[in-house]
């Protein structure tokens, strides 16, 4: 099964729609609740990162026997220092993002915690591609 969602940078009122939709789908498929929750948290953090830090992006969701695969690709500023970005507490979030309840520098570490494999490709000035796998 395959699904793609568009994510609009800066649009906090719509943010989370994609993750919510996939979460409902996973429930319908009858996956274990702990797996659904891990996937939902990781997808939502990635979706919010596009809304908070990039201009626009796409989230691609795929489910194959034994695995959930998610790729979130965006056009945006990219991440100059990945190791720093994955440090708990590091954030460059704007005050607008903070007002929305985000920007604690917890998102990327939280994605890592909730997934079984993660990879990031990023180019400054171009964008970021984050992929992760959750074993079912």
């Amino acid at each position: 099964m395959d699904k793609t969602y568009h994510i609009e940078g800066g649009n906090f009122s719509e943010a989370g729609f994609a993750s919510s939709d996939v979460k409902k789908l996973l429930k319908k498929l009858g996956l274990p609740t702990n797996i659904i929750k891990k996937a939902a948290i990781a997808m939502y953090e990635a979706e919010i990162n596009v809304v908070a830090h990039a201009y626009r992006g796409d989230m691609e969701f795929k489910i194959i026997p034994g695995q959930i695969l998610v790729t979130v690709q965006d056009e945006g500023p990219g991440i100059p220092d990945l190791e720093l970005a994955f440090t708990e507490g590091f954030s460059t979030a704007s005050s607008k993002v903070r007002e929305m309840g985000f920007g604690a520098g917890m998102g990327l570490p939280n994605i890592k915690r909730n997934t079984d494999d993660i990879s990031v490709e990023t180019e400054v000035g171009k964008g970021t591609r984050l992929s992760f796998v959750i074993n079912i």
Partner: peptide
């Protein structure tokens, strides 16, 4: 915090 992300966040973590 009373915006849509409050509810989205709640939804994600059940």
């Amino acid at each position: 915090l009373s915006n849509s992300q409050t509810l989205r966040t709640a939804e994600m973590v059940d």
